[in-house]
Structure formats: structure tokens, C-alpha cells
């Protein structure tokens, strides 16, 4: 893993951007571009951890882990670093937990070109401030990820999508035990259940679900709209069924960018974010012009 070379490429001054496979937006136009190291350093199946370069394609990582019966909770497509920098879990977040919780250690290059380590290699760690959480979802504005240690999970013995036509999706949501995903498209609720084959079948039968394929995402362009979970069924009531997909329990609605009102950022929170950027990257050289989260609608992120 050539972290030293990566740090030298980032350097100590001048605007610089980073790109992996450009799945989630890619490089800032007109700015010198670097790439993170790629490749799997090790897989420790009995520790449920993996160390790899941030430039490693997620598909490559997934294939290597599958040989050990394990997986990460990163969403499909693009690179490990890209997924972490954008910080958006896939539609399995209800069951998997948020992607940010999978990042145990990050070695990144800071705005001064120095190599910095955040977090630690073990699955449990509260040593010092949690810079890892800050990096996930920072869109490369605080530092460029070089290599990471991720927590892995076992691949469930059985995994099956189910569906039910209903106008009361929350009844289904309440009826299933620790589902991996519950999605609502306005007329149909889609449920992903995993575990022992017989438990999955029992649960599906109890909730009146029938086997189905995974639901399609709404067509591009689409955005990820955020609400309080309790508001989701209400705010999507005005939308045409099938034009959106809502993640129940999580308040996420995937729909056309202008389909739902955008939320105004809180000025107090924005002030902390501003100070954070000023301290981590005083010259504003890392991914100039990018505001974490704001690139959402245009980047066309995959679930």
C-alpha cells in the first residue's frame, strides 16, 4: 500500500481533488486529481475485519470477502473510499446499521500533506475523539482517505425479498422482526428478510408477504430526501405511486429532485461545519467548492 506516494501526490499546497471510479460524482472539474491506493491488504475473518486501500473497488472487496462468507455494509458500486466519503448507506441500513459504523480505522492524507491515523484496528474502541465518524460523509473536504480498516459481517444463510400490496405499510413494518429493509412505493410495501430459511418463511407468512424481486429504484434523476421517519407516509401521500421509494423507519425518500421540498440547513450546525473545515483545511484546497451533502441531487447516488 503506497501511502507515502499517495501523500506526496496530494502534497502540501494548491487545489487538489480525488476520484475513484467516479460513481458518486467524481473529481472536481479543472482541479489536479489524485487517486487513493487500491488493493486488499488483509482479511481477518475470525476478527471480522478487513484492511484495504480506499481506491479498492467495492465489487472486488465484496468478491474477496464472499470467499470467507463475509461482506461489508458498504453500498454496491464504486470504490471503498468513494462510498465512505459520500457516507450514504444503501437500502439495507435498517438491518445493517449505518455504513459509518463500519469504519474502524482510517489512514488519510490531511490538507498539509501529512499522513494521519484516525480510530484503531479493533472492533471496539473509544480511544480519543472519533475522527473516523467525521470523515465518513465529509466528501473529501477534510482529508483524503488512503486506507481503511472495516468491520465485516457474516453473509446470512438465506436472503429473500417479499412484497405486499397495501395502503397501510406501517402495519407490515410493525409485523416483521428486525427486517433488513422495508421500502414503500405508494401502493406496495417491499421487505427484505434474512436469516434462517424457516424463520424467514414463518415471518413472511405471519405478515402476509409473498416472495418477489427487489424493487426497482425510481428513475434518474433522483435525490435522497430526508424526513423524520414518522412523517414519511404523510409526505409521500401526494406522490404518484411508483415514482418514489421510501425507506420506512429511516425517513429516507428516493424521488425526483423537485418532488419534495428541500430542508434548510440549520445555521448553528453550519457554523460548526464551517469551523471544522477551517481547522482541517484552512486554505480550502481539498475538493474545493464541494459542500458535504450538497452534491447529493446532482451526483445521482445509487442506493
Amino acid at each position: 500500500m503506497d501511502l507515502t506516494g499517495f501523500a506526496a501526490a496530494v502534497g502540501p499546497d494548491g487545489p487538489v481533488t480525488i476520484a475513484g471510479l467516479s460513481t458518486r460524482g467524481g473529481a472536481v472539474a479543472g482541479v489536479r486529481c489524485v487517486s487513493a491506493p487500491s488493493g486488499i491488504e488483509w482479511i481477518q475473518a475470525d476478527e471480522m475485519t478487513v484492511r484495504c486501500g480506499a481506491g479498492t473497488p467495492i465489487d472486488e472487496l465484496a468478491a474477496a470477502l464472499a470467499e470467507h462468507g463475509q461482506r461489508t455494509v458498504l453500498p454496491d458500486g464504486g470504490t471503498v473510499g468513494g462510498a465512505l466519503a459520500v457516507g450514504r448507506s444503501g437500502i439495507r441500513r435498517l438491518g445493517d446499521g449505518a455504513m459509518r459504523d463500519a469504519l474502524l480505522q482510517a489512514v488519510y492524507v490531511g490538507a498539509d500533506g501529512a499522513i494521519v491515523t484516525a480510530g484503531g484496528p479493533t472492533v471496539k474502541n473509544v480511544s480519543g475523539f472519533d475522527v473516523c465518524r467525521l470523515l465518513v460523509g465529509s466528501w473529501g473536504t477534510l482529508g483524503f482517505l488512503g486506507d481503511v480498516i472495516l468491520r465485516t459481517r457474516p453473509i446470512a444463510p438465506h436472503s429473500q425479498w417479499f412484497a405486499r400490496d397495501t395502503s397501510a405499510p406501517l402495519e407490515t413494518f410493525a409485523a416483521v422482526h428486525r427486517p433488513v429493509s422495508v421500502l414503500w412505493d405508494g401502493s406496495r410495501v417491499h421487505v427484505l428478510l434474512e436469516g434462517h430459511r424457516l424463520d424467514v418463511a414463518d415471518q413472511a407468512a405471519r405478515a402476509g408477504l409473498r416472495e418477489s424481486a427487489a424493487p426497482p429504484m425510481p428513475p434518474s434523476p433522483r435525490a435522497r430526501h430526508l424526513f423524520a421517519p414518522s412523517a414519511v407516509v404523510g409526505v409521500t401521500a401526494s406522490l404518484e405511486p411508483g415514482t418514489f421509494l421510501a425507506e420506512l423507519g429511516l425517513g429516507v425518500v428516493h424521488a425526483a429532485p423537485d418532488a419534495l421540498p428541500a430542508r434548510e440547513p440549520d445555521p448553528g450546525v453550519a457554523a460548526i461545519e464551517h469551523r471544522m473545515k477551517a481547522r482541517f483545511d484552512p486554505a480550502g484546497r481539498l475538493n474545493p467548492g464541494v459542500a458535504p451533502g450538497a452534491g447529493a441531487a446532482s451526483a445521482g447516488t445509487h442506493p
Binding site: D130, V136, G137, R224, P229, V252, E273, A296
Partner: peptide, 15 residues
């Protein structure tokens, strides 16, 4: 942070 648990912007909740 927010009730949905994964907002846009920096994860200041996590920090």
C-alpha cells in the same frame, strides 16, 4: 443528527 439517523453534511452527531 436527526431522527432518520443519516443526514447530509458532516456527521457531527458521530463526532
Amino acid at each position: 443528527g436527526g431522527e432518520g439517523g443519516e443526514g447530509d453534511g458532516l456527521d457531527l452527531r458521530g463526532a
